[in-house]
Structures are given as C-alpha cells and as structure tokens.
C-alpha cells in the first residue's frame, strides 16, 4: 500500500510539472492563482486553464487507459510483448481516421474518435484471430509478426489515399504521431465516459487474469469460463485503446513497458498489477509530454515520439531476456 501511495504522489508531481512547465514561462504562484482564484482577464490564467489543464487531464486519462490496456493484453495473451503499437491496433485506428478525414470530411479531433475506435477494434480482432490460428495458440512471435504484417498492409492502403489527397495528408500527419498538444476540455469530456467504463471493467479483471495466467486448463478447473473471460478482456482493451487513441493519436510502447514495471514492483498478481499500471502509466506519459515541451524549445516533440524513443530500447531488453513465452 505504501508503494501505491508513493506512486499516487508521483502522479500529482507529474501533473503539477505539466501545469507549470511550458513554452511560455509562467511563475508557480500565477499557476496556483489560476486554479484557485481564476481571473478570465489574465492571459496567463487562460493559458493554464484552457490549455495546460485539459492537456494534463488528457495525459492522465490516456496514460491510465494505455497502461491498463497493456496489462490486460499481456495477461490475456500470456504474451510479454503485446502492445497496441506492435500488434497493429494503432495502424487500424490510423487507417480509419484517414478514411474519416478523406471520405467523410471529418476535420476535428473530436470527430476522429469514432473512426479511431472502429479501426482499433477491427485490427485487434483481426490480429488476434489470425495470430491464434494453429495448434500452439497466440505465441509472441506469431502475434508480433501478424501485427507487423498487418501494419505494413494497412499502411499501403493508407498511402493510396494520402498520395492523392494532400489536404487529408496535411491533417493526418499531425494526428499520426500521437500527442497531447492542443487537446481541449471538449475532447477530455468526450473521451472520459468511455475511459471510465473501460477502467472499471479492467480493474475488475484481476482475478480472471490470474486464472488465465495459469493456462486455460487450470483456469477451467477453477470453474472459469475461459471464452467468456477472454471476451470481457477484449472488450476492455478495445474500449481503452480505442478511446485513448482517438483522444491522443497512436501512442506506442507505453502499454508495453508499464505492466513490466508494475510486475517488478508487485510480483505476478494481476489484482495489484492492474492498479499499479493504471497509476504508473500516466506518470510516464505526462512526464514524456513535459520532456517534449522542454527539449526542442520553442517547438515541441510530441509525447508519442518521446515514448517511442524511450520504449524501443525497453522492447529490445525484453526480447533479450530469456524465457520470453513464459509469462
């Protein structure tokens, strides 16, 4: 419990940093003022409440969602390398967003939500269905290869649209990197209900995941309905990933790394891994976002890029560890 409280403090620190640090230097006192005694006439106050506060909230929500989704995917597939980026889920969301912009003329971030959702769900189902064909089920290599292959396949369809439609490309290239820049209160309000449902659902899956991690046969002997359990897990993952991707664009590697950190802290019990992942992941995402604002002043490096640059080495380390399939 003390560890969990410590991580809670980290969440607050990260959120505070995200409110204070930015392209425009605003003193800490003014930031506090903006939160406590808001003055609509003060431009600094407006920056804090209209820009940095929603962005921070979006970061916390998206982070929590991706961390939880990662833990659930890894648990249900018994695969330490499962991640929405590696598994092609992000590519599915991206293709549908491209089609949304180009065919249906969607122009706002809030309009992307549904397309991102649909694409993420379709890709997740497709990858898992193809990857789990065959006798030995969904092995890490099969799932990763299927994900990489599907990513390549979807990308080439997407390129056909982008090559002929430069207005769409101009919008899409900014969505694709995965970022918290410019996420306003409306987007947060739109995504929050989905994420809330997803979070509640996912947090309730601890016992089920513990059972599944022992193998299907053992889980069945405990009286679990393995198929129904898998479906619940999949529903949680699609809600969490779809809403998070719709809000922030595809952010890779976060769902991959955080559950491993959580596992280091708590051991193999999913009833603890899930809440730890939910709290650790927003810390990392918000800090990545803050770091992105600092390293390339006066411009910004998007949070999705920072997580990819930090996450790829972690992925390599995980692959190099032995006993990969034995999760």
């Amino acid at each position: 419990m003390r560890k969990l409280a410590g991580i809670g403090v980290l969440v607050l620190v990260a959120a505070a940093l995200s409110l204070v640090v930015g392209t425009k230097a605003i003193p800490v006192g003014t930031v506090l003022d903006a939160l406590v005694r808001f003055d609509p006439a003060d431009p600094d106050h407006l920056i804090v409440t209209e820009r940095r506060l929603p962005r921070t909230l979006a970061g916390l929500l998206v982070g929590a969602a991706l961390g939880l989704a990662g833990a659930v995917i890894q648990g249900v597939t018994r695969n330490p390398l499962a991640d929405p980026g590696i598994l092609g889920v992000n590519a599915g969301a991206a293709l549908c967003v491209v089609l949304g912009i180009s065919v249906f003329g969607v122009t706002t971030l809030s309009g992307y939500v549904w397309f991102g959702f649909a694409g993420a769900a379709l890709a997740a189902v497709l990858v898992y269905a193809i990857g789990s064909l065959g006798g030995d089920g969904a092995s890490p290599l099969k799932l990763a290869l299927t994900g990489a292959a599907l990513t390549a396949a979807l990308a080439s369809v997407q390129n056909v649209v982008l090559l002929t439609d430069s207005a769409t490309y101009d919008q899409f290239r900014f969505w694709r990197v995965g970022s918290l820049t410019g996420r306003d209160a409306e987007i947060v309000a739109q995504g929050a209900p989905f994420l809330l449902v997803g979070v509640v659902l996912a947090l309730g899956l601890g016992k089920i995941l513990n059972g599944l991690s022992l193998g299907d046969d053992v889980a069945r002997s405990f009286g679990q309905n393995v198929t129904a359990d898998r479906v619940w897990c999949a529903v949680a993952v699609v809600i969490l990933c779809g809403a998070a991707t719709a809000m922030a664009g595809p952010i890779g590697f976060l769902g991959l790394t955080v559950p491993h950190l959580a596992r280091l802290l708590t051991g193999p019990d999913y009833r603890w891994i899930l809440p730890y992942s939910m709290l650790l992941s927003p810390v990392l995402l918000v800090l990545a976002d803050v770091a992105g604002r600092v390293v390339a002043r006066p411009g910004e490096v998007q949070a999705g890029i920072v997580t990819a640059i930090l996450g790829a080495p972690v992925f390599v380390l995980l692959v190099r560890r032995r006993k990969l399939a034995a999760l």
Binding site: A144, L145, V177, G178, F253, I305, A308, F315, R320
Partner: peptide, 21 residues
C-alpha cells in the same frame, strides 16, 4: 525477427515525427 520489429516500430515513429516538422 522480434528485435527487428521493435526497432522498426521505433524508427517509423521517428519518420512520422520528421513528417510533422
């Protein structure tokens, strides 16, 4: 193969980043 896929995912987000710049 797995390490190749990981590196490739990292590199492609680098490409996406360059495109926004």
């Amino acid at each position: 193969v797995l390490i190749g896929i990981g590196i490739s995912a990292g590199l492609s987000s680098l490409v996406s980043f360059l495109m926004t710049r």
